[in-house]
Every structure is written in C-alpha cells, then in structure tokens.
Simulated assay, not measured.
Amino acid sequence: MSNLDKFEKQINEIEVVMDAWVEKLGLGYNHYAVLYSLATAENGQCTQKQICEEWWVPKQTVFNICKDYKEKGWIEFSESSTDKRERIMRLTEMGKAQAEPIRKKTEQFDEQTFARFGKKKTAQMFALLAEFCDICRTQVENMEIEKND
C-alpha cells in the first residue's frame, strides 16, 4: 500500500467517524452543514454559495434544504446589498432553537476531542497537514505527465 493510499484510508476513517457524529445528532451531513453554518455564521448570516464552498455540497442540495427550512420557518432570506443575485440567510428564532443545540454539542465534541489529543500534538498535526498540502500542490503544479491520444 502506497503512502497516498494509507493517507486516504486515514482521511476516510475520520470522515466515517464524523458521519457517525452527525448521525448521532439526528441529521444527515448536508442538513448538518446548513444548520451548523447558519448557527456559526459571522454576524449570524451567510449565503448558500458560502455553504456550498465550505462544505463541498452541491448548489441544488443546499438550495433544496434552505427552501425546506424556509417553509418550516427556520430561516429567512434578504437581498445582499452588494450583489442583487445573492440572498443572505439567517436563522429565525425557531431556527435558532433547532441549530443552537447542534452548535453547542459540536463545540463540546471539538473541545473534548482536541483536549484529549493535546495542544502540542494538535498544533503539530495542523502544521504538518498544511505543509503536506503545500508540497502536494507544488507537486501537482510541477509534475509533467505525458498524455496519450
């Protein structure tokens, strides 16, 4: 097994654990992404585009979830002052009641998990991952591959 295979296996294991966490909260990944984004958004507001880019969720999926949440009375939309095509979303009081427990439980999970891992190892892990990502990016940019037509 190559190092890239081992790396991908570890990343996949982390994703399985995170999916189990989201499921324990009673949500699917996409619904979690929308609610958590809205609960933690700067100034309490964000756009569908921001959620799509941050969580790698398709635009149509985010649109459908937001439409459903609007119908439930959990979110409200307003026009962006800078881009009329963009709609700003924010949680309503009913939406906050749904999203706040998810935010709190996720923060608790985060704090406890990284406390157990330790500050030093956490800092090392993030520094190493950032360095590895830079190296991979450089390799992709510089590596020549012959194309067979």
Rank of each mutant, 00 (worst) to 15 (best):
S78Y: 04
F7V: 07
P58Y: 02
I11P: 04
T92Y: 04
E79G: 10
K120L: 13
I145W: 08
V22E: 00
L38K: 00
F109C: 05
K96T: 07
E100I: 06
T106C: 04
A130T: 15
R137S: 12
G28E: 14
C66L: 11
Q60M: 11
T106K: 00
T106W: 02
T47E: 04
E71L: 12
L129R: 13
I135S: 07
V22F: 00
E100N: 06
L91S: 01
A127I: 14
Q48D: 09
E144G: 09
G118M: 03
Q45A: 10
E53R: 10
K49E: 15
C66I: 09
F7A: 07
E53K: 09
R85W: 06
F77N: 07
K105R: 14
K121H: 09
G26H: 02
V140N: 11
E100T: 08
K24S: 15
K147R: 12
I75C: 01
Q50I: 06
L128T: 15
Q108G: 07
V34P: 00
G73Y: 00
E13A: 12
Q139V: 08
D19K: 14
T138I: 09
Y69C: 05
E76Q: 05
E86N: 12
M125W: 11
H31Y: 13
S80C: 08
L91C: 03
E93H: 09
Y32F: 10
N12F: 10
E93A: 13
G28R: 14
I102M: 02
Y32E: 02
C66V: 11
T47A: 03
L35I: 03
K105A: 14
E146S: 13
D83Q: 06
A41L: 02
T122D: 02
M89A: 13
F77A: 13
L35T: 01
E42R: 11
K119S: 14
K105N: 09
D68N: 12
K147P: 02
W74E: 01
K120E: 15
F126A: 11
I51A: 00
I102Y: 00
E86F: 08
A99L: 02
V57K: 02
T92K: 03
D110P: 05
F114Q: 05
L27T: 02
D19Q: 13
Q112W: 06
C52K: 01
K121P: 01
R103A: 06
A123L: 15
V34R: 00
K104D: 15
E93F: 09
E54S: 12
G118V: 03
P58K: 04
A99W: 01
W56D: 14
K72P: 01
I14Q: 03
N43Y: 14
I14H: 01
Q60Y: 06
C52S: 02
V62A: 05
